[in-house]
Structures are given as C-alpha cells and as structure tokens.
Nucleic acid binder design. Structure first.
Lengths: 199, 199, 199, 199
DNA sequence: TATGAATGAGGTTTCATTCAT
DNA sequence: TATGAATGAAACCTCATTCAT
C-alpha cells in the first residue's frame, strides 16, 4: 500500500539478497564453475527458479556478486580518505582500511582474491574494478614523482603491496598463520619499507 | 607382462605426458571445474578413455598436475641452493629462481597461483606443497633469529614476499604491466626491504 | 452475490476477452506448445494468475479459443445462408463468406488452419467443429445426388475445396503470393470446376 | 578394420538413423515444441546425451528431419519425371507421385504438411523447400503461357492443387474419410478441372 | 477479484566416466 | 593398450500453476 515501500522492496528484495549472499558464500568457497545453481538455491532458501526471476543467468549473478563486493571494497578503501595527510599516514590508512575490509567482509575478500574472474566479467564489472584501482594508482604515481616511493612503475608498486597483503590473508585462510593485530602492524611497516626508501 | 615394465611404461608414457600437458594448460586457463575432460582429451590428442587408463579420475589428474608443478617449483627453488652464502645473496637467488620458474614454466606458475586448489588436493599434494615451503621457512626462521629479518612470524614473512612476487606476475598476466628485468630487480630490492631492516 | 450476475460477469468479463485475444494471437503465431502462459498474460495485460481465474488450465484456454474461432467461422459461413438458391450461387456465397472470414479474422483463420489441434481438443471443441462441417456436408451430398457435383464422397469434395482454399491463404501467409480479389474470384471458378462437371 | 565400413558407419550411423526416425515420428504427431528430447531418446532407444553427439541441438535435429523429408519428397516428385509428355499426363504423374509419397512416407508427409515450420527453419531447409517448388512452378508457368491452365498466377495454381491434395490426406488422417484409389483418381480428375479449362 | 512472486517439475544440454571394439 | 561412441546423472534454465496479499 505504501508505494515507496514497494519500490524499496523490489529494489532491495529480501530474496534477491538471500540469493546474493548464498552466491557470495559458495562462489568464494568453490569458485564459479564449482557451484551448482540448485545447491545455491537451497542455501539461499529459495526455489531454483526464483534465482532466474532476479538474474538473467548464472553469469549475470556472478557479475552482480562481483560488482557488489568490489563496490564495497571501493567504499571501504576510498570513502572520505584524506589524501592531504602525509604519505606515510595515507599508507597506514589504506592498510587499515584493507584490513578492516578483509575482516568485516571475509567472504567478499576471498571471493575477490581467491579466484580468477576474467572469463565471465562484463563491462560493468570491469568498470567497478577500475574505480578501486585508480585512486591507489594516483597515490603511487604522486609518491613516485615526489621521490618518496621507489622508482618503479606505479603498477608494480601497487602489485607488490596488494600482493603482499593478499598473501597474508591467503596464508591465514590456508591455516598457516593467525593474523594478530601485531602481525598486521608489523606487516604494514614492512610493506611501507618495500614501497618507500624513506625511514 | 612384466609388472615393473608396465609401471615404468605407464609412468613415463608419452600419452601420460600429453595428458598432463593438456591438463596443465586448461586448468591454468579455466580452472579445474571449468575444464571438460573430453576437450582436454582432444587437446592432448588422445581418446577420452585413455585419460582413465593413466588417472583414476579427474581429481587424480589434477592432483598429478599439481604435484608435478609443485615439484618443479621445488627443484627450481631449492636444487643446489647454497644456504651458506650471505642472507642477502640467498634472497636474491630465491628471487631469481622464482623469476626463472615463472618465466620458464608460465603455465605451471599460473596454475599454482591463480587458482584455489584446496577442495581437491590429496595428501600427497599437500606433502609436496610443504616440501616447497619448509626450506624457505627455515631461511626465514634463521634470519629472524639472527636479527636480520623483521621480527615477525616466519610464516608472515614468507606470505608477504611470496604474495608480493605473485602480485607482480598476476598484474602482468592481467595486462596491467610488463615485467622487465629492471622492474624485477627493483622489486627484488623492495621486497628485501620488506624482509629485512638492514641496508 | 447474485450468481447470475457472477456468471454473466465472468463470461463477458473484459479480462476474459483480453486473455482470449492474446491467446488467439500467440497460439496462431507459435502454436500451443510454443506459447508460454506468463508471456500470454503480459500480452493480455493481466496477471498470470488471472488467467487461472477464467480458465482451469492452459488446455481449457486453448479449447475456449478454438471454440470461439470455430463458432465465429460457423456464423460467418452459415448464418442466413440461403440454400434454396441455385447450387452455383450457394458455392459462390460459401467462397465469399470464407474469404470474408479469412480477411476479417485472420488470426482466427490461421489459428484454425495452420496448426494441428487434435491432441488437446475436448468434446465441446469437436462438437463445434462438426457444426461447421455438417451444413457443408449436406450441401455436398445434395449436389452429388442431384448429379451436379462430381461423383465422390461428400467428405472428399469438402476436403478438396476446403484444402484448396486453405492452400491459397497459407501461400499468402508464407509470402509466396498476394491474394487480390481477382485471384480469389478466379480461384473460386477453378474450385467450382473441381466440384462440379456442369458449366 | 575395414575403413570403408567405418566411414559408411559414421555417415549413416545406425544411431543417427534411429534418432531421425523417432524425431520424425514424434514431431509429426505432436509438433516440435510438443516433443521432449528425453522421450524422443527413449523412443529412439538411445541415451538422451547421444542425440547431442549427432545434432548440435533440438533445432538442428528438426532441420535435419525437415531436409530429409523434403528431399525425399523432391526425389519422389521430380526424379526422372518426363516433362515432355502432354501436360495432362504430367499432371497425372505428379498426382500419382504425390499419392505414392503420402502412402509410402506417411510420417514424412504429415510432418511436412501438418505443422508450421517457419520459426525454426534454417537456410539449408529453405533451400530444399525451393527445390521442391521450382519445377512445379515451371510446369504451372508453362501451362499458363500455353493457354492450358487457368489464367492465374502460377503460385495460386500451385497453392490450389497442393492445398486440395493435402486437404484430402488431412481429412483421412482426421478420420473423416478413407482414401481409396478410386477416390484419389476422381480427385485427380477434379483437380485437373480446377487447373485447366480444357477437357 | 486480481495479482505476480514463487515454485519445482520438467525442459534442453553438458560431461565425467564406461566399455565394446 | 587405446579408443571414442555411448550414457545418464546432473548441470542450467523455463514455465504452468499456486497462493499470499
């Protein structure tokens, strides 16, 4: 009866949400091809056919999951980030935000990092991916120009730090390690050392 | 008729090799679940049934691929590595050997790093994985004890460096970057900085 | 509350009409099995569930469509047809009425003639079919007895003429032909020749 | 062991034949959309998956069935038909060949005539359809030019005769009529009357 | 009365595996 | 030993029908 409600309901439909959650979980655990739609439906607590009321097909679903996870990451990383503060502090902020993301949204983080998404990503998904990367890239470029970061392509600097961070959480997820705050702080310092030749 | 012969033949068979090669290629490109056995057989140039003469099933095949790739990595990393030389030099050697592996065996490298193997790995595969990790772990432990490496768990140090290295090649494979020797050398120096507080 | 009212309402309901129209259109275009109920509902501009308020199921709907179309044909063909006029004139009248039906109700005509209804027709539908055929059959029988028509079973005479007529419109619908009034008149003469040995 | 045998086997594979037969039967009975692949497989006596070894998909299968049926019709109608004989005799020959086709290949005839194929026909199927029509069209054109046939477009003449013929067999299949040779001969004479104004 | 979201049976199709050759 | 045709279970997806609103 409340049209506003209706609209909100249809946009943020509870079923749609259940499906996205189940998809996130299973795709993160087993990957796209390793996840069967009927099982996904069961975990979501909906009929298999219902999934196709909300998503054109399985590929559209995985892209929706990807875009949501990447957008969340983008918000966590970049929202109200003050790039005017000293580079060393910005770096710490990035690190803390990344950590916060990986801790708050472990499924999103694992889904994004543990799998190989290229073959099924559509344009919108690739666009969101770039929205995450561009600000970090700018930060690297600026610091390199300022003589703060090592004299490497910004892409290489990003890849090193990002890779190191992902490596830590992958190791934890594999059971090799428990990431305490202390370790994460030490790792942050170590990564800063691999980013900048300043002390 | 001679069982020894049979075993030797089956282990060293040319067909077995073709199958492993095709499996490596397709698993690296599309992942385990994204690869169909009949197509794999076609790429290998053998009949689909032939695969089941050499491997019990698809899972046994992926484990064989995994073990071969990891063993190769183990050999590349650790064979005749002189751990007596100064830690900085050992680090450089590790880096160069890793680089050499990633360049010489790109499919093996991508297969090992781009995908999420846990769900189908058997004990033998896990054992080989440890054979790769243990020497590096020892190196990290020793350097930490000697006050050379940062005061972090060896597992964290490993995860950082390994992650950074993988990050570089993942970025290259995604088209964000071309890894020249110069960049790889700079990255090596940067990673040493994230490993050790010495100059 | 007034059952009579209810019945009238449900029989003459505007929604019922919309559903029958949409069903006619889609069944004519794609056949019974090629038409999906939800799409039919959308074309009709009603909810999918609404269809089941007016018809027990899809089969009941197609029978209703069939009976309406056949009844319309029956009315067009036989209403106030004067069988006392000379046979040649009656034939022309039949032909003109058929033409008028095919032109005025092209969907009904195509639905009736382009598809194969047997598997889902119920008794009522078969009864209506007979109501169309019987007067024509009588006409054929009478003319045969009178030595006007060829000495064939009435059923064969009917099948020939009816088939020829349908063939013309099928050819037009397939794009092989445009049926002008002239052609239709010539065809009428030709069909009379195949019906009667008189001049 | 006999390579020739192998080739013949693969071209005319017995399974392929079983599938085509079952498809012809069910498509003729129930139409394309009314036929389910698993049921078709069961009638053919093969596994459901086997069908997809021989045909890309259901649509490719129905096109194969169509092309086979139309080719058969083409051969029956046109093979070694002597167009030099008098038109009246050619007409009789056409009629007899059509009758022979409808009697010898009743499923093919019903499949071709009882259903509406347009939506799924591919180019090859349309090409075969034309191969059937063109010679008949030429015959009609020639007879019209010679003043033998009624002065109607060839397409209209064809549609009339073809429609009349199909009407007869449709009536028989519907149970309205049993087509004896006598009736077929009388019908042939009647149809000639609707084709030509000569005696 | 009317709806359309929801369903699950059943549709088309794929694929890991087997087995006759 | 090697094959690849064959399979049927299970994948993805559709749709006739129901039912809470």
């Amino acid at each position: 009866m409340n049209p506003t409600n209706t609209v909100l309901y249809s946009k943020g439909s509870v079923k749609r949400e259940l499906i996205l959650q189940a998809a996130l979980q299973l795709f993160a655990e087993r990957g796209y091809h390793g996840t069967a739609v009927p099982e996904l439906a069961q975990i979501a607590g909906v009929g298999a056919g219902t999934i196709y009321r909300y998503f054109d097909n399985k590929e559209a679903l995985v892209n929706a999951v990807f875009q949501r996870a990447k957008s969340l990451l983008k918000d966590c990383l970049h929202h109200e980030l003050n790039l005017e503060t000293p580079p060393r502090e910005v770096f710490t902020q990035f690190w803390q935000r990344l950590t916060s993301f990986a801790r708050t949204y472990p499924l999103e983080f694992r889904f994004l990092e543990l799998h190989h998404h290229q073959p099924y990503l559509n344009e919108a998904s690739i666009a969101v991916e770039l929205q995450v990367l561009v600000p970090i890239w700018s930060y690297c470029v600026a610091n390199r120009r300022a003589g703060i970061a090592y004299d490497m392509p910004a892409e290489a600097l990003m890849a090193l730090i990002w890779g190191a961070f992902v490596g830590l959480f992958k190791a934890e997820h594999s059971g090799y390690l428990v990431l305490t705050d202390e370790i994460l702080n030490q790792a942050e310092a170590a990564c800063w050392s691999s980013f900048s030749n300043t002390h």
